[in-house]
Simulated scan of single mutants.
Amino acid sequence: MILHASTQDLPCLREVGINPSKLFDTELGGRIAGLPRVGLGPLLESLMGVSLAKEHSAVDWSTRPLPHEWLNYAALDVELLIPLRNKMYELLSEAKKWKWAEQEFASILLAPPAPPRIDPWRRTSGMHKIKKRDQLAVIKNLWIARNEIAQTHDVSSGKLLNDAGIIELAIHKPTTKKDIEKTLRPIGMRARWSENMSTWISAIESAVNAPEDQWPPMKSGADTLPPIKLWRERFPEKYAPLTHARFAIETLSHDLSIPAENLISPEVIRRICWAPPAASTAALDVAAVAEAMAGLGARSWQIEIVAAPVASALLEREPREVPAPEEPESEPSVD
C-alpha cells in the first residue's frame, strides 16, 4: 500500500478492516531521502512538475455527507501516488538509503497500537499556566465533557470549546453564563461555545465543589522524563552526555542529509542518557548501548550509525556549551 504520512491513515484503515502487509510512505521516504519539503504538494511539484489544486484544503472535513466535489478533490490527492512512489524509490536507491526506508516502513506496520494515554486531558495546550490542583480539576472535567459531546456528535472538540478557553475557565472558575462569557470574550468568544453552556457550568461547579483529595495531582503517573530544561541544574550528570549525544546526532544528520528525528528518535537518546546501560558511563560499551537502543525500538540501520557516537557521549562529564547567538554589529557612532 502506498500512503503519504501513513501514521495518520493507518489507524483509520484498520478500524474498517484494512491491514496492509507492505507499505511505502512517500512522506517518510522524502524525509529519509533528505528532501527539504515533504508535503504531498511540494513533492509532486519538485519531483514530477505537477501542482495540486487546494481549493478545498481548509474546509470542514467533519461535514457529513461530504459534497461530491470534495470527494473528487480527496481522490485527486492520491491519484499520483504510484508514479510518486516510483520516483521516490529511484531517489532512495541512488542515495543508498532504500534499505533504511524499507526498515522504517516495516516498523510502522509492526508497531503495536499506541496504549491509551494516561490522563489525556493533561495534553491540553496552555497547561504551563496552571499552578493549582483545583484548576487541574476544572480542566479535567471540561476536557472530558467536551470530548464526550464531540464523540457523540462526530465533531472536532476544538469547535465546541478550544484549549485556550478551557485554560481560561480553569484559571478564573466562573460558574454563571455571564461570567463565562466575560472570561472568554478576551480570547475571542465563539457563538458555538455557548451551545453547551450548561455543560460547562456543571463541569466547573463539580470541580470547584469536589473535596481536595479528589483533585488531580500536579504531576501524572505516566512514565515521562523531566523536562530537558531541568536537566542542567538538577541532573548535570545526565545533561552532559545528552548535549554531546545531541551534537553527534545533529552532525550525522547534516552529513547524511536526513532529519535528526528520523535518524534516531529523540526519545531514545533522552532515555539512553537518563538511564544508561550499566557500566557504560565508566568505559566505552557500544554493544550495551546498541542493545539498549534496540530495546527502545530503534531499527538496526539506526543503531549501526548512532550507537558508537552515543556510547562515546555517555563518557562525557562536562556539557557541551551551546554557542550564544551572535550579536549584530553596531554601527559606529557619529560624533
Rank of each mutant, 00 (worst) to 15 (best):
108 I>P: 13
125 S>E: 12
52 L>R: 04
109 L>S: 07
147 N>Y: 03
61 W>G: 07
118 I>L: 15
16 V>F: 06
34 G>L: 04
86 N>P: 01
122 R>D: 13
147 N>E: 15
81 L>P: 02
117 R>H: 06
20 P>K: 03
81 L>E: 03
35 L>I: 09
117 R>I: 14
120 P>G: 05
144 I>A: 11
55 E>M: 02
127 M>A: 08
68 H>K: 14
56 H>D: 05
29 G>K: 00
88 M>Y: 00
59 V>C: 10
69 E>S: 14
87 K>M: 09
79 E>T: 12
72 N>Y: 01
114 A>I: 06
138 V>D: 08
125 S>I: 14
84 L>Q: 11
38 V>I: 15
61 W>Q: 07
72 N>V: 13
74 A>P: 05
23 L>A: 03
134 D>C: 04
88 M>P: 10
75 A>Q: 12
79 E>R: 12
13 L>M: 13
76 L>G: 05
52 L>C: 02
146 R>K: 12
83 P>W: 00
54 K>N: 09
107 S>F: 02
84 L>D: 11
31 R>Y: 07
21 S>P: 02
51 S>N: 05
128 H>Y: 10
146 R>Y: 06
29 G>D: 02
24 F>N: 02
71 L>P: 02
146 R>S: 10
48 M>Q: 12
49 G>Y: 00
52 L>V: 09
59 V>M: 12
55 E>Q: 15
104 E>T: 10
134 D>Q: 13
113 P>H: 09
117 R>K: 15
97 K>P: 11
45 E>D: 14
38 V>P: 00
49 G>E: 03
60 D>Y: 03
17 G>I: 08
19 N>F: 08
79 E>D: 09
63 T>A: 11
27 E>S: 12
82 I>F: 01
32 I>V: 15
32 I>M: 08
